[in-house]
């Protein structure tokens, strides 16, 4: 894969070392980008206030400054906490985030590992973060944290299914689970016999796209689905006992996962790294691909954060009801109709 980029043959360990180093820099950066662009700038703009202005030009270094501040905070683990599980929880959450990035393609050759199970793998490892959240909630031995952790578990149960079932429509159309194959299928597709624009699956799978966006909002515990971390009810939920950098790992995990989910949505529904007019087999696609993917990710992330800043929080029972009575039947109907249309047409 990467020998095509560097035009030299690299051993497996060399390739892996490069991939690990790139990912170790890139993944925290994605969290910073989302935090600054949307959480700070867009949110303050939507709420008619200034937002951070002091650190760096136009306050762009505010999050980096916050990170430095967190690095200097005392490391406190409560006496009553289960120390091992308490320490392991952020690792599990971060591991889930990093593993999700493994299958994200940014170009025909720019992918960490093109697993044949691609999207299935992504769904599996991304739900691992809830295990970390439950570990954090339980091990803190704090009533707020326990309640927040249990709420996060309930949220997973409600929204994991619509998420998986929404993906199924895309898989039927692409005929593969691999993320690269899904991009290729969109590049190869045609609309009413016109192939110049390919076939982004958002056009044929608009219902799945809607379900997917609602479900990732809940999976990411973004408002209006932020009951696990609702500050006015459970004072921050599962991370109430975490301080300093251990707390920041949860923040990092949440925003980097938001970026990864936006990337998955962009790949499944908007064509990923593929741009109309550029030959996907050419070397140029490796250069334009990451830029195109980034633009598409920012569009999807804008939608996520737009919902976040607009809607008030749901109640826990409303959340369960919405998922089981509306989203899951809708997703099953979408699979059925997609299957029938694909076979009949």
């Amino acid at each position: 894969m990467s020998e095509l980029i560097f035009a030299i043959e690299l051993a497996y360990w060399q390739q892996t070392l490069i991939k690990v180093l790139v990912a170790a820099v890139l993944i925290p950066t994605t969290a910073l980008i989302l935090g600054i662009v949307f959480l700070f700038k867009m949110m303050s703009w939507m709420q008619s206030r200034m937002g951070p202005q002091e650190a760096g030009p136009r306050g762009l270094l505010q999050l980096a400054a916050d990170g430095l501040k967190f690095l200097q905070k005392e490391d406190i683990i409560p006496d009553r906490a289960d120390r091992f599980v308490f320490k392991a929880a952020p690792v599990v959450v971060l591991a889930s985030t990093f593993l999700t990035y493994v299958i994200l393609p940014a170009g025909p050759d720019l992918i960490i590992e093109n697993l044949p199970t691609g999207i299935f793998f992504a769904m599996a490892v991304s739900s691992l973060s809830v295990v970390g959240v439950l570990m954090a909630g339980w091990s803190s031995s704090n009533k707020y944290a326990l309640m927040g952790g249990l709420r996060a578990g309930g949220q997973l149960i409600a929204y994991e299914l619509p998420l998986i079932l929404a993906v199924m429509g895309v898989v039927i159309q692409a005929g593969s689970l691999s993320m690269q194959d899904i991009v290729w299928a969109q590049a190869d597709g045609s609309m009413f016999g016109f192939g110049g624009l390919g076939l982004p699956f958002v056009i044929t799978q608009i219902v799945a796209f809607f379900i997917f966006m609602v479900a990732i909002q809940a999976e990411l515990t973004q408002p209006p689905f932020d009951m696990p971390v609702a500050e006015s009810e459970v004072v921050g939920g599962f991370h109430v006992e975490y301080t300093g950098f251990r707390f920041l790992f949860f923040f990092l995990g949440e925003f980097a996962t938001a970026f990864a989910f936006a990337a998955i949505a962009a790949t499944l529904f908007l064509g990923g790294w593929w741009v109309p007019g550029i030959d996907p087999n050419s070397a140029l696609a490796n250069i334009v691909g990451p830029i195109a993917l980034f633009v598409k990710i920012m569009v999807v992330a804008f939608l996520i954060f737009w919902f976040r800043f607009t809607y008030p929080r749901f109640r826990e029972d409303q959340l369960q009801r919405f998922a089981w009575k509306y989203l899951i039947p809708l997703a099953l109907a979408n699979i059925t109709i997609t299957g029938i249309l694909v076979v009949v047409l």
């Binding site: 690990v20 990912a23 170790a24 971060l94 593993l99 990035y101 960490i112 790992f249």
Partner: peptide
């Protein structure tokens, strides 16, 4: 390819 997956899991531990 799954060895790479395992390495990326360990990357989280390394970063923490």
């Amino acid at each position: 390819s799954y060895l790479t997956v395992a390495i990326f899991g360990l990357l989280a531990l390394g970063m923490v």
